[in-house]
Design a protein around this nucleic acid. Structure first.
Lengths: 272, 272
DNA sequence: ACCATCTCCGTACGGCGTACGTTGTTGCCC
DNA sequence: GGGCAACAACGTACGCCGTACGGAGATGGT
């Protein structure tokens, strides 16, 4: 095989949340002037270099050594400013999250459907711009200024609809989850193409004969009927189209909730 | 920091689709009896060992050396049977996909809403059982028997609704994408806990004071109002609840499409 | 009996994250 | 101004990773 690009899902948290929070909020640790040589580096420069690298070459190209090299510095020097790669990823993520929703009014003014659509499209574009962000764990989110701002603005997109607070949170999570799921397709296609050097068309052209050889139309009648049509109309699998189609369905469904009111909640009650 | 578990998103395809397809469909390459020693290993045993390892310890623990060790064999021996790690992942994925939807009738009989719900729940459970599957690229899917069967059965779940073929495909993709996006939360929480050894509660207890210190309720009024409520009711963020809530919204939205008929399509038209 | 062919595997290369200890600079205090 | 504690920068090394390569020994067909 050619390569195996690993879009690492890495983790936040050093076990020392204090250090992480101090870094995220750029709270300098101590006094104004202290002994020791002047630093040639700072957290912002490291984060900026790392983001640029990940944007350009993907998360698999993001190594401490490469970031250091980009900054003209030895690898271990980074560890003076950042506890490890995990924390660096958190800092990167919070940094780029901060650039989301530059025009706040798109989320806070107008009818709810337009606001939620703006939310979804902004996140879609965001993940296209920073595909690596998809693969940074959200299990322990970096509670920095970027994420806080995003959460606030996105909550405003579902505010004033008469929904209980819990449902506001659930709605934001739902739309974000949908975007995450859908945008993955674009990213993985692009990454596959970059890594293998083989275009989507080339790959399919090479693979299709073997599919034809092995595919049993009697066992898979529905696939035999739908597959070709979908393949031709969507170009095998068109994530952009999936996004538009899915978003419309999703907003329709949310509309049912908003119109009926929270009392008409048809599910989402107690788990198990 | 402690560790950085990397749920590698790795890629299919050696550039030799023939070899991949032959492996996926277990098409033996040549004659019945050929020179050379008997093999102690076969593809099925390798795949089974690899799946067991990934299920138990996560994708980051899945190294060729570990799989080989599990089989009592030298690392390089695996390469006699499998071209590389990428192909092994494809084989693993197709293998576990084959166990989806054991009861076909859940997808093929009954009202459409129940069928789609069964589809979603089956995939939800599947990703809980094999969390690593989330992180194997779908950009170039392994076109093996497992995936084919899944595609066929899931298409049947949206068959007979009077929808055009393209929309059947889009609907299956939509529900699957939703599940993928939502289940990620569970997985990443569990993985974070396993890797760091710190429980969700411990982490939040350690982090919360620093949040309180830095959070500005005037800048983030909506978050200040919603966050605590959602936090208390959902336990910070409860993916199970998000799934139930989101699924209900999604099915409502699909219901609008199904009831209105494809003519009433409110979006999903031409891209750009 | 030969030999082409195949399985298995030991070694090695270049990557990774990062622990550890050294070097040399700096500001504070006496 | 001299000394020293604190600090940034960094060289080396360890244990991982995927896998290229070539050798050794077993096998079946001729």
């Amino acid at each position: 095989m050619l390569e195996s690009e690993d879009m690492a899902t890495e983790f936040t948290g050093t076990g020392d949340p204090a250090r992480s929070m101090a870094l995220l909020w750029r709270t300098p640790p101590g006094a104004d002037s202290r002994p020791g040589p002047k630093t040639t580096l700072d957290v912002d420069r490291i984060v900026a270099a790392a983001v640029a690298l990940a944007d350009a070459d993907g998360l698999s190209a993001l190594s401490m050594r490469r970031v250091a090299a980009e900054l003209g510095v030895a690898a271990m020097t980074l560890y003076t400013h950042v506890p490890g790669k995990g924390e660096l990823l958190d800092l990167m993520l919070d940094a780029v999250l901060g650039e989301l929703h530059p025009d706040e009014r798109l989320l806070t003014a107008g009818p709810w459907r337009a606001r939620l659509e703006a939310l979804a499209r902004a996140n879609w574009d965001f993940f296209l711009r920073h595909p690596w962000a998809l693969h940074v764990s959200t299990g322990r989110p970096p509670l920095g200024p970027g994420l806080m701002r995003k959460y606030e603005l996105e909550l405003r997109a579902v505010d004033g609809l008469g929904l209980p607070e819990v449902q506001m949170d659930l709605l934001v999570t739902l739309v974000n989850g949908f975007v995450r799921g859908t945008v993955g397709g674009v990213h993985e296609k692009a990454a596959a193409e970059r890594v293998t050097g083989i275009s989507e068309d080339q790959w399919w052209a090479a693979t299709e004969p073997y599919v034809a050889q092995v595919f049993d139309a009697e066992r898979f009648p529905t696939a035999a009927r739908v597959g070709p049509v979908a393949g031709e109309e969507l170009g095998a699998y068109d994530p952009r189209r999936s996004f538009e189609f899915g978003l419309a369905r999703l907003l329709d469904g949310i509309g049912v909730l908003v119109d009926t009111g929270p009392a008409g909640l048809s599910a989402g009650g107690t788990p198990t």
